[in-house]
Design a protein around this nucleic acid. Sequence first.
DNA 1: ATTATGCATTGATGTAAGTCAAATTGATAG
DNA 2: CTATCAATTTGACTTACATCAATGCATAAT
Lengths: 239, 239
Amino acid sequence: MNSQPSSKILDNIRQACGTCSLNSLCLPMGLSHEEMLTLDQLVKRQLIVNKGEYLFRMEHHFDYLYAIRAGSFKTFLVSEKGTDQITGFYLPGELLGFDGIEPGHHQVTAVALETSSVCQLKFDELLQIASKIQGLQRHLMAILSQRFNNQFTISVNHNAEQRIARFLLSLSERFKRRGYSADTFNLTMSRQEIGNYLGLANETVSRILAKFREQGILESHQREMHLLDLRALQMTACG
Amino acid sequence: MNSQPSSKILDNIRQACGTCSLNSLCLPMGLSHEEMLTLDQLVKRQLIVNKGEYLFRMEHHFDYLYAIRAGSFKTFLVSEKGTDQITGFYLPGELLGFDGIEPGHHQVTAVALETSSVCQLKFDELLQIASKIQGLQRHLMAILSQRFNNQFTISVNHNAEQRIARFLLSLSERFKRRGYSADTFNLTMSRQEIGNYLGLANETVSRILAKFREQGILESHQREMHLLDLRALQMTACG
DNA sequence: ATTATGCATTGATGTAAGTCAAATTGATAG
DNA sequence: CTATCAATTTGACTTACATCAATGCATAAT
């Protein structure tokens, strides 16, 4: 089964992540800063995905997780009658592909929203390492559990305003954690895609953003977002 | 740190699960049938929770996962303005408590919907064992990933009929896997609770169940459910 | 520049589901 | 057996958001 000894695998991962500025986000508990110094295997594990291209497709075999180095992705599932349901947006430093673990093939399709760069991590190897490294195993489960919890943050019992406020705050939070501005960013998804994700019509998204502008909560032009009053946005999110 | 050697811990778990008819559901990949024969530590790890009692509470410290032996639970979070949001229902053979992994304290409160019996599993010990047993680690992640995926099965882009149809099918499916009838079962939750979970008013739940009755899709009286036409229900679920 | 093409915005109208209210049923206690 | 209380059902009315439609802007292609 495991032709590669796990210490060798571990070395490869160390090399791959050593110089990545995002390593603390992908696998924060797993590998100490000291462990990650060399980089020669990095390029081998790196992948460029152009805008609109698939990273993986629903029903295709599951082998890898992907850590986003740069860019962004959406995942969606295609329903019985052919309509898409967007299930998530993914930003730099975030892991994606977990949806394939169980039946062994992906439950969703992942598409790049802009030209993006990802690191490919063989899931089996990652698990092997996780069983060796204190905290990594737990961290992977934490990612999954948090993702599940957050799903209810943007949820069925919230109205359109609250959903959009929460969506913006979620993006803001995530950009901030990655060292980007928490109040000024470009959306890489359309109104249509936001609406689909939140269960709203794109017109509703547009109207509510207009309302937020009128209220002085934010400025926006097309996909440029500038949040002016995070506190007010939080109040709106709560209702 | 680990005063107990992991082989000792493993023995305890074996003993706890050896005679439980649900072991194949809780930890199917982890422990072979042969491994689980003795039972003397079982009672120690078993817990009875009466209807309406808490299994764990939001913001309380996270240490344990719970495997349901009998009964059922709901989990909910309390929003900023004090309203509840039900985040899940849990049936025999299912694990709950994962919500606490990340910040180290629970994100939701778990309440018994009827008198229930659960097994308490120390999460740290479970992880220790998972790193030893081929497949268990992966299985735990699979549970989490599936749960996340399923969240979109009952989702924002579906109307009231579809949500309720999907909810019933989900219950049916889960009862079936546990060896219970797939078409006849008692709901342990109120219309109010179903509505809260699905983002609908309890009146809407009531009305749509009435509609399903008229259509001959099911018979229901209070909380007794008898699904007559699973195929039709599936069609409704898809729209 | 000029036309195409897709996305965003804004307005007018319709509808699914929420809210409010009352009636019915069932469970529990006295 | 009757009273009480909660859950469910059903009806009348309201509303938030969807849908349909038209217009305004961008970016890209000619």
